[in-house]
Design a binder for these strands. Structure first.
Lengths: 230, 230
DNA sequence: GCAAAAGTGTTATGAGTACACCCATGG
DNA sequence: CCATGGGTGTACTCATAACACTTTTGC
């Protein structure tokens, strides 16, 4: 067995945030060193010897952006020999979501170096990061329909219209409000709070809450979250 | 940036084969070296400097087992610092399927060192390989319902009953033959050949063929393979 | 003619879909 | 009283689910 292997291991994160209708964004950093110095890239970096991959992602996110992540899962591992022009670096990529209240980039960061980019205004990215981003975007679209991850892009309490708009934005489809609400509520994993939000014009909206505990219970008895639309 | 990173990169493959009803098996090798010498493990090994991850998997499978793989996709990357008791070794795991006609282990392999194991007779495995296997098994179950991967576990031409039994075996469920056949045929991705198989007792069966080309065409026009049962 | 597996059609039920009007608030 | 967004019910359509008898072959 050969042991003269020379491959470094890094982690990269595609972190999505949702601000409002048609406003889905991704967190990017501007690279301060070569290669691709000055180019935008996904937050990430080399894994340290004694930390797990998840710890590495969280550390890098915290160091580079100060963001607190609400949902994190492994996405894919990119390992083509030439993906880094200098040394061989393997990237274990992660897929993350943040709620609006965790949207803020840490204060001591140079604002010019960390930014949220609207998903259809992504600059040319370093390495194969565009490919990673594309895969994450696909995953987000696919997963929204069969796992309740949308709630990790909304505040803990939200009006139903936010949820509708989130689905329409990510799936890039019009969805019938009445059917959406009926089906979503039929799962029994969303609770009505007794709060009411009155912002802007129009009738104030009741606030709802995702009941994660209830969802986990149901999952045990082979319940499957599944919300698809034509 | 730290560059004194000391992590090796390996690939491991969970390869499934289907022989007959209730007979789903996994390919394992007996380790010839420490750690875990003499224990059964997933085929795999260190990635070489100039090969891609997929190339590494195929090379290892070919070297260790001589098997030709019919379907291969990345599964998950396991990177806990202590998963290898000696050095830190990251494992990019793959999920593979082989058709019955590619089932044979190569001749010059010591038969005692490479074996197909029935899925519920798996011995205690080296490293965290049981965990990897469990994840692959889950993936197989899940994917069978929304992608036509079952065909990569059957011969190119097969009687419909084989397909039914494959689904029942993997999903561990009884399925109504009439409804299954109706739905499966309704996709229009399975062709009738004019061959007939007459083995064993009972009425001989028509042989069918998966039309991959047709499937790929349909996929473009947002067709989704989806076959679920209660 | 009997055993074994293949082949096939109909009905009932429930989920998905399409669709439009009233309500509460602020200005 | 008007503009704005929130909240709600019904009827139709189509896919799924349940269900049993006939056909072909070997022995």
């Amino acid at each position: 067995m050969k042991v003269n292997q020379d491959i470094k291991v890094s982690v990269d994160a595609v972190v999505f945030g949702y601000e409002s209708k048609n406003n889905l964004s991704v967190l990017l950093i501007k690279r301060g060193i070569e290669p691709f110095k000055g180019k935008w890239a996904l937050p990430g970096g080399l894994v340290m010897n004694d930390e797990s991959l998840e710890e590495a992602v969280e550390r890098e996110l915290s160091e580079e952006t100060g963001i607190t992540i609400d949902y994190l899962e492994q996405l894919y591992t990119f390992g083509t020999p030439k993906r880094d022009p200098r040394n061989r670096v393997l990237s274990v990529s992660y897929f993350g979501l943040v709620k609006p209240n965790h949207f803020n980039i840490k204060a001591d960061t140079d604002a010019a170096d960390v930014q949220w980019f609207h998903l259809n205004e992504i600059p040319k990215l370093a390495f194969d990061h565009q490919q990673i981003l594309d895969m994450a975007h696909q995953r987000l679209k696919a997963k929204l329909s069969y796992e309740p991850i949308g709630f990790d892009l909304l505040s803990d309490e939200f009006p139903f219209s936010d949820l509708e708009n989130l689905y329409m934005t990510i799936l890039e489809k019009e969805i019938d409000r009445r059917n959406f609400r009926k089906k979503m509520l039929s799962f029994g994993i969303i609770e009505e709070t007794n709060k009411i939000e009155k912002i802007g014009s129009g009738r104030p909206a009741k606030l709802f809450k995702f009941n994660k505990k209830k969802f986990k219970q149901l999952t045990v008895n082979d319940f499957h979250f599944d919300i698809k639309f034509v």
